[in-house]
Design a protein around this nucleic acid. Structure first.
Length: 639
RNA sequence: GCUGGCGUAGCUCAGUCGGCAGAGCGAGCGAUUCGUAAUCGCUAGGUCGAGGGUUCAAGUCCCUCCGCCAGCUCCA
């Protein structure tokens, strides 16, 4: 047998020669014992494979560990097999569906006679622990189609049989074996069950087989797993913490907003919540005015004719609130763009008028399906920090750069980081190919010129234009899609928009839909959770509360409150005949940033004693000195 | 919209086998005049989500609807 050699290129650029047939595991071992121990799978020429896969050709290879997104996916995927094995041991009649990895966990859809209870989950976990202890090797086998089909048929796994039957004729059919358990699976997997040491089953819900209504409902068992115990513990802590700061609990508790069944999907903003909401709008207006945006307010109900022109009638009608009057159908606007197109058309536009930036904070309504509603995060009635930019083709790049600067200004104010995803032309695109390519190049160029990393999501754009989506990360590490920049080549055609170019010719502008906070309602909900209701001073509905120690200083307290109010702070007075500790406790629970204690000492010296929610007792100071510091924090929107 | 679960005082929850609707917190009133996270006492507070049914009797059992929750789905 000839000892053929192959060349492997490692991520650090180095190259090494090994005999053909060397496994990824052996490569990892040759790199280092630590890496070999951490190795979960390997990425060979872009394909994620088992560590035991023999390498036959020259390749780029990367050993995947839990630090890699793909490594985690393999780890979680193997976790689902441990889960499935445990369930099959406890309920042999269970029929397995599919069990993929999620971003921070996994699930397995299983046909069980009854929904597993909390106790059942505990039993499954116990069984999983035994499987992990046993440390079964996870072994890949490739089978002929008929063998796989017969095997799963015989084991009474109709869903698996269905998957086998649906695989393309030329597909390699692989199964993975661990102990007595065999699952149809493309893989790859971690080397043995002993790797899945730290896991937790989280919840159960129903899910249709293959996500198709009408199909049988399987029990979807959710769980998560980590390589390190601390990471699992941190994950579970963050989950608990998320529950605690759920905006649906904190909102009413802090008297910000409520929901009522009389108007599902629409928020009632209370006085305190509305102060917070308006501060968000104010920030948006400030930034956008500086960037040359012009705010307008357009109608919220239009004749159906308008929605036919815009294409919403065809594509979005199911999500619209429609109403009929005098034999005519009207629709409440789900978006501002058609109204802004009407504004654009009012005049003949010159190339000099562009870019034209029209912003609006008006009410929007989308009839989200009842099951989709979720506090402020998914509502039917909302407002966006919306704007439509009408630009020449050659202005796209500059304009995108300007939008990204706005995004920066706004998100840095909240101390939130974000990442950008560029989605490009889908298969069913409309419009000219040349325009698409030019626009996509400008989007990428804008990002590159600002030195921004971004992920490419090829083919995920809308049929009318490519887009940028922004995902912000909150204090618990959760990601939220908020800002979006959407190029639109179709609406200008539908509304027959044009401008007169330098040469006197009429040309088609490109429209850019963009929102930075997105739905302000939704963003408000995200912020409540991000700050756990503990808002920075500029957002706090009540910025300071004057607390009197005894009744004899009521008058002084009222005076202090009035002076601070006059200075421009949002201040309340608590002069009830309660003990100071009680008043402080209450103010703390209401998350008031500054508690200003006034007793006889302060009254005599003309001072106030500052206690800040974050810093505790900060000592006494003159009223005006406090006002000046506080106002400066508000002005700078300090965190 | 679909699957499953839930709905009792402002909030959190208890309510057994169908047999007089409860607690804590909060609220109101009164007393207390106190120095950095809970002073004491008294009082009020309910269409048990809505409608229908079974029963001598329904918070409890059955049906329909509404809302909420976990998912699915959707997200021109």
């Amino acid at each position: 047998m000839s000892e053929r050699e192959i060349r492997l290129r490692l991520p650090d650029g180095s190259e090494r020669r090994v005999p053909a047939g060397t496994t990824a595991r052996e490569v990892a071992q040759s790199i280092g014992a630590r890496l070999a121990k951490a190795a979960l799978a390997a990425k060979v020429n872009g394909e994620v494979v088992d560590l035991d896969r023999p390498l036959q050709e020259d390749a780029e290879i990367r050993i995947l560990t839990f630090e890699d997104e793909e490594g985690r996916a393999v780890f979680r995927h193997s976790s689902t097999h441990v889960l499935a094995q445990a369930v099959k041991r406890l309920w042999p009649e269970a029929k397995l569906g599919t069990g993929p990895a999620l971003e921070d966990g996994f699930y397995y859809d299983i046909d069980l006679p009854h929904a597993p209870s909390e106790e059942d989950l505990a039993r499954i976990e116990e069984e999983m622990r035994r499987i992990v202890e046993a440390d079964y090797p996870i072994v890949r086998e490739e089978w002929p189609r008929e063998k796989a089909r017969a095997f799963f048929l015989e084991r009474n796994e109709p869903y698996k049989v269905e998957i086998v039957d649906d695989l393309p004729p030329d597909a390699t059919i692989s199964v993975y074996r661990q102990g007595e358990f065999v699952d149809l699976c493309r893989g790859p997997h971690v080397p043995s069950t002993g790797r899945i040491r730290h896991f937790k089953l989280l919840s159960v819900s129903g899910a249709y087989w293959r996500a198709k209504e009408g199909n049988p409902v399987l029990q979807r068992i959710y769980g998560t797993s980590f390589e390190r115990k601390e990471d699992l513990e941190h994950f579970l802590w963050a989950r608990e913490e998320a529950k605690k700061r759920d905006h649906r609990r904190l909102g009413p508790e802090l008297d910000l907003f409520t929901f009522h069944e009389e108007a599902p999907g629409f928020a009632f903003w209370h006085p305190k919540g509305w102060i917070f909401y308006r501060e968000l709008e104010r920030l948006s207006r400030e930034v956008q005015e500086r960037h040359g945006y012009q705010e307008v307010r357009t109608p919220y109900i239009y004749r159906a004719e308008l929605w036919k022109t815009s294409g919403h009638w065809e594509h979005y009608r199911d999500n619209m609130f429609l109403t009929e009057r005098e034999d005519e159908v009207f629709g409440f606007k789900p978006m501002n763009c058609p109204g802004h197109c009407i504004l654009y058309k009012e005049k003949i536009r010159s190339y000099r008028d562009l870019p034209l930036r029209i912003s609006e904070y008006g009410p929007l309504a989308r009839c989200e399906r009842s099951g989709a509603l979720h506090g402020l995060l998914r509502v039917r009635g909302f407002h966006q920090d919306d704007a439509h930019l009408f630009v020449r083709e050659d202005q796209i790049e500059d304009e995108i750069r300007d939008v990204i600067e706005i995004v920066d200004e706004i998100y840095s104010t909240f101390g939130m980081r974000y990442r950008i995803v560029l989605s490009t032309r889908p298969e069913d695109y409309m419009g000219e190919l040349a325009l698409w390519e030019k626009a996509e190049a400008q989007l990428a160029q804008a990002l590159q010129s600002l030195g921004r990393d971004f992920r490419l999501n090829p083919g995920d754009g809308a049929f009318y234009g490519p887009k940028l989506d922004f995902y912000v990360t909150d204090a618990l590490g959760r990601e939220w899609q908020t800002a979006t920049v959407q190029l639109d080549f179709q609406l200008p055609v539908r509304f027959d928009l044009h401008y007169v170019d330098r040469d006197g010719q009429e040309r088609r502008p490109v429209m850019i839909h963009r929102a930075i906070l997105g739905s302000i309602e939704r963003f408000a909900g995200i912020l409540v959770e991000h700050f756990a209701g503990d808002f920075p001073l500029w957002l706090a509905p009540v910025q300071a509360r004057v607390l009197t120690v005894t009744d004899e200083v009521k008058g002084y307290g009222a005076g202090v409150r009035d002076r601070l109010k006059a200075a421009g702070l949002r201040v309340e007075l608590d002069d009830r005949s309660e003990k100071i500790g009680y008043k402080i406790r209450q103010a703390e629970l209401e998350k008031v940033p500054y508690m200003l204690v006034v007793g006889r000492r302060e009254a005599e010296a003309g001072l106030l004693a500052v206690r800040s929610r974050r810093g505790g007792d900060e000592g006494a100071m003159p009223v005006e000195a406090f006002a000046a510091t506080a106002l400066e924090r508000v002005r700078s929107r300090a965190l």
